[in-house]
């Protein structure tokens, strides 16, 4: 119940750019989520946290119309997402999947350039705008000097930043990122998160990220969504919802919530795990 009120509270200031309404998704016989509602506030950074296999990635894939829900609908700018043309969606909404594969031997600049696909047509193949978007994306992610390198030559962290550059080159006002900090060392993690914040603060882009690190989530989220076993347990500003009870309920760990002395954000100090993780989904139906 508190969640609903929180949603409305946030929506007063930030209308939902992307909204899932009573979404139900399952793989084969495994129910991923049922009747799930979520609104993504425009111009904010939304971070989704939750234990493994709680449905975070499936939620992102559903919101980006890669998964078609059995029930419910996804609204992008108040219009059913499947009523848009596929390139039309791709000019508004971009996705960085958890892992991607690239053809062997491809160089960084060529890969990033593939992010311009939704902006190109048969007659408008490659323009100055494409050129500029690709150059800016590589600059912003610090891979500009690697433009000629092939992907195989890069480290995991560099590769991740190349994928991110590709997403940036897509120039979408809404960006969904599935664990953008995996593969990165702590320095590059912060760099990516700072970049995301800049994209949001300076260009007003809406971001939705799945993150594993609770403290990073608390620090960078305007709107935090905690999921467990296919349900949204709590959603709202981190300082409002991040409590020891919530952390225990969602992650099955005992934790203390302090105040981050640097930023004033909530600061999660894990203490111990509480019993085995039970994801409960199989028991339900």
């Amino acid at each position: 119940m508190t969640m609903k009120r929180e949603d409305m509270f946030l929506e007063d200031r930030h209308p939902a750019v992307l909204r899932g309404e009573s979404l139900s998704v399952s793989y084969e016989s495994r129910r991923v989520f049922k009747g799930l509602d979520l609104s993504i506030p425009e111009g904010q950074i939304t971070v989704i946290v939750g234990p493994n296999a709680c449905g975070k990635s499936s939620l992102l894939r559903t919101l980006s119309r890669l998964l078609v829900p059995e029930q419910g609908q996804v609204l992008l700018r108040d219009r059913e997402i499947h009523r848009y043309g596929s390139r039309e969606v791709a000019r508004i909404l971009g996705l960085l999947p958890q892992s991607s594969s690239a053809p062997a031997g491809i160089c960084v600049a060529d890969l990033v350039a593939r992010g311009r696909f939704p902006h190109q047509t048969l007659l408008r193949q490659w323009t100055a705008a494409d050129e500029q978007a690709v150059a800016q994306a590589m600059q912003a992610t610090g891979v500009h000097s690697l433009a000629d390198a092939t992907l195989e030559e890069l480290s995991g962290g560099q590769r991740q930043r190349v994928w991110l550059a590709m997403l940036l080159a897509q120039e979408t006002p809404v960006m969904l990122l599935d664990e953008p900090t995996t593969w990165l060392d702590i320095c590059h993690q912060l760099e990516v998160l700072e970049l995301c914040r800049r994209l949001n603060r300076e260009q007003g882009r809406t971001l939705v990220m799945v993150l594993h690190d609770l403290n990073q989530a608390a620090r960078y989220a305007d709107y935090l969504v905690a999921m467990k076993a296919g349900e949204i347990v709590a959603a709202g500003a981190p300082e409002r919802i991040l409590t020891a009870e919530l952390v225990e309920r969602v992650f099955s760990i005992r934790a203390r919530i302090e105040t981050d002395p640097v930023t004033g954000c909530p600061w999660v100090l894990p203490i111990a795990s509480v019993g085995r993780m039970d994801d409960g989904r199989f028991l339900k139906e």
Binding site: L66, A90, R91, L95, S100, A102, P103, F117
Partner: peptide, 20 residues
């Protein structure tokens, strides 16, 4: 040609970029 470029990126990314 360009659609084939995107096919190589795998199902999710290709479709996210507007490929059918």
């Amino acid at each position: 040609a360009r659609a084939l470029d995107l096919m190589a990126l795998g199902g999710d990314l290709g479709r996210a970029l507007g490929l059918r």
